[in-house]
Amino acid sequence: MLEAKLDAASQLKKIVEAIRDMLGECNIECNETGLALQSLDKSHIVLVSLLLGSDGFSEYRCDRGVTLGLNINSLATVLRCANNDDILTLRSEDRANELILTFEDSKADRISEFNLRLMDIDQEYLAIPETEYAATVVMSAAVLQRTLRDLSALSEAVTIEIDKEGIRFSAEGDLGKGSTHFKPCVDMENAENSINITLSEPVSLSFNLQYFSNITKASSLSSTVTLQMTAGMPAQIEYKLPSGHVRYYFAPKIED
C-alpha cells in the first residue's frame, strides 16, 4: 500500500497545475523511493517526467510497487478542494481501484476525504537517452517565463541561441521582430537572478511558444530553471523540487 503525507497541500497543487494542461490520463508509479510519472502531451511534442522522492514527504510508506492510473484533470479538480496549508495524505491499498486523498486543517479540526477512481491505463514508456548537452543555462524561472510571454505577442515560435556571449531569445512575425539577450552574470544578493552558462559548442533551436508557455507554468515550483540544448535534439527543461524534479523534454522545430 501507499501512504504519503505532505505538510502543505500547495506542494502537490503547484505540481499538478504545472502539468495538467499538457497531460490527460497517465500512470503515477509509486515505490519505496517515491512517486514517478512519465507521459507525452497529447500532441507528442513534450515529454513530461516527474520525480517526487520519498524524502520530499513528511511521512512516506510504500511497501510494494503501486501504479496509480489517474486523470490529471480529475486530480487537479479534487486538489482544488484543499487549502494551500492543509496537511495532505495520499493513500491507496494494494490493487485498490481508488486513491484516497485527505486534507487536514490541524487548527480547525477539519478533515476532508476524497476518493478518486483509478483507471487501467495501458501506457508506453520512452527510453530517455543519457545525453551530454552542448549548452546548459541556469536562469531565473520567472525571467524565462516573462521573456517568452513577451515574444509570444510577435510569433508562434521562438529561436533560442546560446553561445559564450550569452543566451538570446528572438521571434519574428507579421508585425515585426523582437529579441532579448542575457549575458552570463552573477547576482550575489539574489542568486536566482544569476545567469550561468556552460557550453561545449554554440547551439540554436526553435520552439513553439504555446507549448513553451505551458512548460513555464512550472515557474511557481522553483526560483530557477535549467535549460539544456543540443542542436537537432529535444531541449531538457528542468525545475528542481526539494526532493525530485519536473522535467520537460521539448521537441524543436526542424528545417526540412
Partner: peptide, 14 residues
C-alpha cells in the same frame, strides 16, 4: 518553414 518535430522521432519506446 521549419516543421514541428515530435518526441517519438528522438526517443525510442522502452
Amino acid at each position: 518553414p521549419p516543421k514541428q518535430a515530435t518526441i517519438m522521432s528522438f526517443f525510442a519506446k522502452k
